[in-house]
Structure formats: C-alpha cells, structure tokens
Amino acid sequence: MENGEWRVDASKLKYAQTHEWVSLKGNVATVGISDHAQKEISDVVFVELPAPGRVLKQKESAMVIESVKAAFDIYAPMSGKITRVNEKLKDKPELVNRSPYADGWLFEIECSNVKEWDSLLAGDAYEAVKSAH
C-alpha cells in the first residue's frame, strides 16, 4: 500500500456506505476514511474532530473534514462514545491524504452495540460501492 504502514489489519477492515473504514477490537472501533474518499476530497486543509466523550448514533454526523472548496461530513459508522481522537490532525490535516489507514486515522469509538459491525460492508462489497460512483 502506497500510504505507508498499516495501522490496522486490512483484511479485517469494514466500511460504511459513506466511505469510512472501521477496525474493531473488542468493543473499540477505530475509524478513518478510505483512500478512495481522501482522493475525492483532495487536499484536506482542516479536520474538525469530535469532542471526546460525545455519544453518537450510527450514521450520525461525527465530524467534518474540509478541503479548500468543500466541507465533508464524516459519519459515525457505529453507535457509541468517542474515547480518543487523532490529535495530530489538528496541526497536520494532510495526514488524512498521506496516510488514510495509519497516521491519518480519525477517532476511536467505544461501541454500544457491537452487532452494528454486521451492517458494515466488507472489502469486496465496498469495492463495488466505489465503482458504482
């Protein structure tokens, strides 16, 4: 993968229809956006991270990624509480472009309903969503 080392195990990633990737360990999900999504967004200039402790429902808008000419909502792929955010993005939003699956991760969420994992897309299903675009 051109975007550096995997922080997460690629084969175990799942995706939301809205292009977020999710890696689940126990009941903690790490969330980022796919390589396809970062290319669509183009140069990320600012990342408005969610406040730790915030409780979100699945598919609720969690945060915003800004490019020069657009703002993109990033949705919580699973319900739960934000436990950690990627502070590095505050000064280096370009990490989302450079390393969407590793240094450019967005936030961690403590899932309140792990069963939602089943509603997410596996890698091949996500490929199909991408090409449909």
Partner: peptide, 11 residues
C-alpha cells in the same frame, strides 16, 4: 500573481 496556493493558505 499566477495561480494561488489556496491549500497552503487554508492549512
């Protein structure tokens, strides 16, 4: 000026 670096301006 020629084309302006808007990404740098925003980052």
């Amino acid at each position: 000026v020629s084309r302006i670096d808007e990404v740098r301006a925003a980052r």
